[in-house]
Design a protein around this nucleic acid. Structure first.
Ligand SMILES: [Mn+2]
Ligand SMILES: [Mn+2]
Ligand SMILES: [Mn+2]
Ligand SMILES: [Mn+2]
Lengths: 223, 223
DNA sequence: TATCATATTTTGACATATCAAAATTTCTGG
DNA sequence: CCAGAAATTTTGATATGTCAAAATATGATA
């Protein structure tokens, strides 16, 4: 029975641990930043999570999930992502608006209901953004994807995952038919201009900056 | 932006106001009982709701919703009941288990999502228990129904509403095919034994006590 | 009307979650 | 290695929501 606050912290720590390649440890600064709280608040929460054996906390070091903390984090993430699927697939919400909704619902759903949702959706393995859905058993498998910036010029790809949940960005992706599942072709890799040009469906090609392109993960299509 | 606690109190006050025929005012004792808190807690909450102009509070008198409080209460009730519909109709949960689930979800759903749910369900006017769903405009219309105890012996009725949300009771109702919408016949009104005998579908007749029968509301079928 | 049971309010305490600002530690560049 | 910058922790405060137990008010009854 962790509170929603605790669930949010644990989920965030999990995601930050994955994101930061600086080892496995999340600093108070990063945690506070990611949670939108002051550093002092992050510190006191870190202690309290450590008291509950959900994280290992080293003063002046940082915080890292324990096995138990990871289990809780993955359960929250599973709920979050399955809810996103439900909202998009059953209720027709736009994928650019489901994130905030799921942020609240992920704390309000029983295991039983979650199972029904999973079944109803046909046991999906990724959410509408292409993010992998942890299993009920607490495993998460992230397939090896390539960023759009790393693809050879001329290659055919299938969009697999969009790493930025920002509404603006998701709508941009939508406009140019670059949702997960779509097939596209990389027309130009302009390293000097730090730009990538992509073309999807019958739409005109679009050129985007490397930072934007780096947030679009793809699979190469054989042949 | 009322907290879920505030939403729960307001909804409960609304329901208690309707239930108690002792005027329109809810005593601290009743409020505390209904909310499962101590009397002191109810008092302090009553004051704080009064500060926010959500209830009128008279010390040693009791509490009564203001127009604003009623609006909030009805919005919560609308969310609760539409969610119950969704869980039963789209996700196939049993009507005996949706209440607790809705109790949490009712605080976690945006207006936008609620509209989608309403649309998805085809704008239902009652929930799975036959409870009326307040409109988006904040109105609630309760049709004049008759308790099973008040019906003439031999009458044909349509079950319209079940007033008790208790799992045991709902399952009893289910077993004997007395869900809202079902047609049934009142075979015996035994006033001496304080019992009512009803028969539905092809099932054998069932005899229940008056207190149970009083919780089943029906419409008389013409002819 | 005086008394007593019952309802209500008040008081003091606690848990959680947060902030601002002060104090402290760690890191880094010269 | 040492001074200043940056990160972190500590301190003192606030808001919400709760309880137990003490104090007080209300209302029925004898
Ligand atoms: Mn959340
Ligand atoms: Mn997602
Ligand atoms: Mn509730
Ligand atoms: Mn209901």
């Amino acid at each position: 029975m962790p509170s929603s606050t605790v669930e949010n912290y644990l989920k965030r720590i999990f995601l930050e641990q994955q994101a930061e390649p600086t080892g496995d440890i999340v600093s108070m600064k990063n945690l506070a930043g990611a949670m939108g709280v002051t550093a002092g608040t992050a510190t006191s929460m870190a202690k309290s999570l450590a008291d509950s054996k959900l994280v290992a906390y080293e003063p002046y070091g940082g915080v890292k999930l324990t096995a138990r903390g990871r289990t809780v984090a993955l359960r929250v993430l599973r709920r979050h992502r399955l809810i996103e699927c439900l909202l998009v697939e059953a209720l027709g919400l736009d994928w650019s608006e489901v994130h905030d909704e799921a942020e609240k619902l992920e704390h309000a759903i029983s295991d039983k209901l979650l199972d029904r949702i999973d079944e109803f959706l046909g046991f999906p393995s990724v959410d509408p953004h292409g993010d992998p859905i942890p299993t009920a058993g607490g495993e998460i498998r992230h397939s090896a994807l390539t960023a759009l910036t790393e693809v050879e010029q001329g290659a055919e790809v299938r969009i697999a995952r969009v790493l930025d949940q920002d509404e603006q960005f998701l709508r941009f992706v939508d406009r140019h038919m670059l949702r997960p599942g779509t097939r596209a072709r990389v027309l130009v890799q302009d390293h000097a201009a730090e730009a990538v040009t992509v073309q999807s469906g019958k739409l005109p090609a679009v050129t985007m900056g490397r930072t934007a392109a780096a947030k679009i993960m793809v699979e190469l299509i054989k042949g």
